[in-house]
Design a protein around this nucleic acid. Structure first.
Lengths: 197, 197
DNA sequence: GAATCTTATTGGATCGCGTCCAACAATACG
DNA sequence: CGTATTGTTGGACGCGATCCAATAAGATTC
C-alpha cells in the first residue's frame, strides 16, 4: 500500500498503537469520558502526535470504513453515464467485501458500554450521507431525476450501513457481511408498504 | 403555546433577535467564521444568554425543523402496531405541512455563500437518522423485519429531507413543499433499477 | 565521520464550542 | 417593603482541534 519511505526520522508510534489504546479506554471508561490526552498518555506519545495519525477522535473509529467509502465514491464517479443497477451494486459490494473487524465493529458491538449512542448517530449520519450522495450522483449521471436519485441513494446507503451494523452487533457469527448486504439490497425492490406509502 | 408566565424577570431578548443576528452574520461572513460571541455581540446580549435560547450554534438553523421532527416521532411511536403505510404517510405529511421559511430554508438556499456545505452534510445526517429511526421503529412495530424497516425508514427520511431541500433551494416558487413531498414519497415505490439492483 | 536533507515528534499557544455556577437584576405578589 | 421567581451576566473551566517553531532521528552524500 504505502511506498514506505526509508528516509527521514522513522515513526516512533503507529496508528494501531493509538487505536488500541483508544479502544481500551473507550471500553473502560466510555467514549465521551476519554479525552485525546488520555489516549496519548496511554499510548506513550504526545497529544500532538495523535493528530498526525488521526484527524479527530472519532476518526479512530471511522477511518477504516471511510477509506472504503472514499474508494467506492471514486469508483461510482468513474461509472459515468454507464451507472446502471448492476454496476452500482458491484461497487457497493466491493465496499463491504472483506471489511474486517475493526475499531468500528468493536464500537458498534459495545455502543452502550461506550456510551456511544449519540456519537454513533451523528457520525453514521455523515457516512450515510456520503454513500447516499455518491449513489445519487451516479444515478443522476445515468439519467435519473434528482429526487428519486436521492431516495435511491439513501436506500442503498441504508443497506450498506445497516448490514454492517447488524453484522457487527452479532459478532462475526451467523451470516457474513457480504451475504447480509446482498439480502439488504434485495429489500430495496421489495419494500413493505410499496403499494401504499 | 406557551403559558406565558407573568412572574419573574421578563425576557430582555428573544430567540428571534438572536436568530436574526446569527443569520445576518452567516450571510455576511460565513457560518464557520461567525462565533457565538459575534452573534451575541450583534444582538446586544451576553454570550451566556445565547445558550439560554439555543442549545448550540447549529440549533439556530435546525430548531424549527427539530421541533417538527420530535413531534412526528411522538406520533409515530403512538401508532404502535397499527403503523401501516397511510398512517406513516400522514404523520410525515404533517411534518412538512406548513413548514415556513425559516433560518434553515435560508441556510439551504445560501449554503455555498455561508460556507455551510460541510456543516449541513453533518447536521442533516443527524435529522435523517432521527426520521429514519422513527419510521423504522414504527415499521418494526407493525411487523416488518429490522433491515427492511431501516431501509424503508431511510427512504422516507430522504423523501422528507430532499423535498425540503429542493423546495428551499428554489425559493418559495414552483411547487409547494407538500406537493413536493407527495411526489417524493411516490418515488419510493417506483425506484429506478428496482428490477436490477 | 561530518554536514545535510528529510521526516517525525513534541510542547505550547491559541481558538471556539459548550457547560457550569454564583452574583445580580427585574418583575410580581403578599 | 420584603420575598419569591425568573432572566441575565461574567467568569472559569474542559475539551477538541489547529498551528507552529524547536528538536530529534534516521538516511544520504561527500
Amino acid at each position: 500500500m504505502e511506498p514506505i519511505s526509508r528516509v527521514g526520522r522513522p515513526k516512533a508510534s503507529s496508528r494501531e498503537t493509538l487505536a488500541d489504546a483508544a479502544c481500551e479506554l473507550f471500553l473502560e471508561q466510555g467514549y465521551e469520558e476519554t479525552s485525546v490526552a488520555d489516549i496519548t498518555r496511554r499510548a506513550g506519545v504526545s497529544r500532538s502526535s495523535f493528530f498526525n495519525y488521526f484527524s479527530s477522535k472519532s476518526d479512530v473509529l471511522w477511518s477504516g470504513l471511510d477509506d472504503r467509502i472514499d474508494h467506492a465514491l471514486v469508483e461510482l464517479a468513474a461509472l459515468g453515464a454507464g451507472a446502471d443497477g448492476p454496476a452500482v451494486r458491484a461497487v457497493l459490494a466491493g465496499l463491504v467485501r472483506g471489511f474486517a473487524p475493526d475499531p468500528l465493529a468493536l464500537a458498534l458491538r459495545n455502543a452502550s458500554a461506550m456510551g456511544l449512542e449519540a456519537e454513533l448517530l451523528r457520525d453514521s449520519g455523515v457516512r450515510h450521507a456520503k454513500i447516499a450522495g455518491g449513489v445519487a450522483a451516479a444515478a443522476r449521471a445515468a439519467g435519473v431525476e434528482p429526487v428519486p436519485a436521492e431516495i435511491l441513494g439513501s436506500a442503498c446507503a441504508a443497506a450498506v450501513l445497516s448490514s454492517i451494523r447488524t453484522w457487527a452487533e452479532e459478532g462475526a457469527g451467523q451470516a457474513s457481511l457480504e451475504t447480509r448486504f446482498d439480502r439488504a439490497l434485495r429489500c430495496i425492490h421489495d419494500l413493505p408498504w410499496s403499494d401504499r406509502v
